[in-house]
């Protein structure tokens, strides 16, 4: 008398056919299959479907596939080399080095904003003066005046 019923057996058939069923279950299923014609037929049908899938052919690999991939990789690699060299291995840097680098970048950004802001405020006055050169009051004329 089989220790498993058809419901369990049919759920295991795919794994059995794929060689993925653990040994104990495999034994139980094989015992069931010896006694159950329905499940044996289902197993045979599953095997035939696998054969059908095997018949689906694929066109050959395009001749230029690998060459195109490598060509594109080469194109991408060139401009990135300097940047990549500078920051290569960021993920494996020691934390102190990472913090120092991040701090330096932030400091540079801060300085850029502060200095840039200061320069911009002084330039605003100059720009107002430049506009006074303009005769007629348009921006283009102002520019022409400054250019002269």
């Amino acid at each position: 008398m089989s220790v498993i019923h058809c419901g369990k057996a049919s759920a295991w058939l795919g794994r059995y056919l794929d060689g993925e069923l653990p040994w104990g279950r495999r034994q139980a299923l094989e015992e069931h299959l010896r006694e159950c014609e329905t499940c044996s037929r289902a197993l045979a049908e599953l095997g035939e479907m696998n054969e059908l899938l095997g018949g689906v052919a694929v066109p050959p690999v395009p001749a230029s596939l690998s060459a195109n991939i490598v060509r594109r990789a080469r194109t991408e690699a060139k401009p990135a080399t300097a940047w990549r060299t500078l920051f290569s291995g960021w993920t494996v840097w020691p934390p102190a080095r990472r913090f120092a680098t991040a701090g330096a970048i932030l400091a540079a950004l801060y300085l850029g904003i502060v200095v840039g802001g200061a320069l911009a405020s002084t330039r605003t006055g100059a720009e107002i003066n430049w506009l006074q050169f303009a005769t007629g009051g348009t921006i283009v004329k102002a520019y022409m005046g400054v250019s002269r």
């Binding site: 395009p62 596939l65 991939i69 594109r72 990789a73 991408e76």
Partner: peptide, 9 residues
């Protein structure tokens, strides 16, 4: 072909 190229890249 497009998928394979993009995947390898």
């Amino acid at each position: 072909e497009d998928v394979v190229q993009e995947a390898f890249l």
